[in-house]
Amino acid sequence: MSVEMFIQHFLNALTLGSLYGLIAIGYTMVYGILRLINFAHGDIFMLGAYFVFWGGALFRLPWFLSVVVAILFTALCGITVDRVAYRPLREAPRISALISSIGVSFFIQNLSIVTFTAIPRAVHVPQWLGQVHLIGKVRLLPLAIVVPIVSLLLTSGLLWVVYRTKPGLAMRAISKDIETTRLMGVPVNRIIAITFGLGSALAAASGIMWALRYPQIHPFMGVIPGFKAFIAAVLGGIGSIQGAVLGGLLLGFIEIMIIAFFPGLSGYRDAFAFVLLIVILLIRPSGLMGEKLEEKV
């Protein structure tokens, strides 16, 4: 493989990995706090992409405004999902909330078919983002630079919230022990809502950039990236934000590089992540950066 080709693959992997990482953060935060695999998270990601599409196509909003509005709307959707489908099940067995989230996932997908139709739509990519530059033999898409940078900024912002603000402190406290935190007078439900809001906002950002990078959107576009991002979160160690980003990047590189070096396996691309998942769960269920949980007898 030539150096140029490798750089090309490297940039692709970096973009894909950053996008996985942003989605994975939402999974990891919700799991860290509620021990819930939020199946609907991939569909929230899809909603982000659709909102920005409609903002531009239907309401003729300037692109940056439609991005902001789309992120806000998606965050609101995430909070609503928690309020309606998960909050009533806080005291229920954990699997109940999981089944509920599977229900929400199918609900959002099919509601999107009803409202947006199942026809894939092309997304308009602004000229300055979509114009390919040739540097030597490397085809450089500005997005390949923008996506990792934006992801890095957003992740840093989130880390600041989690480690430097009061709600962030409350989030970390809840993830250690929800009951005690409640007794300390922390409005637990509001903090959980904020968590869902932040996670969904990041998923929306990822969805928007995904739609620009692979310029097509459809109601099922969130399913596979959603599963993979969850696997990235497990890979990085569920509950750890840095781990989620790291897991996302790693998964992006694994996918792109396996196909780059073994083109014959490209048909199996969607299976890599799942094989990886089963392997991690067997050899190191706590992930790369996660803490080990032990069951008390």
Partner: peptide, 26 residues
């Protein structure tokens, strides 16, 4: 291997198995 896992992790691992079967069939 998979049944050593409990609860939701088992769900995801078995879901992963089903997806692998589908991709292989494809």
């Amino acid at each position: 291997p998979v049944l050593r896992l409990g609860g939701d992790y088992l769900g995801i691992a078995t879901l992963g198995f089903a997806e692998i079967v589908r991709v292989v069939a494809n």
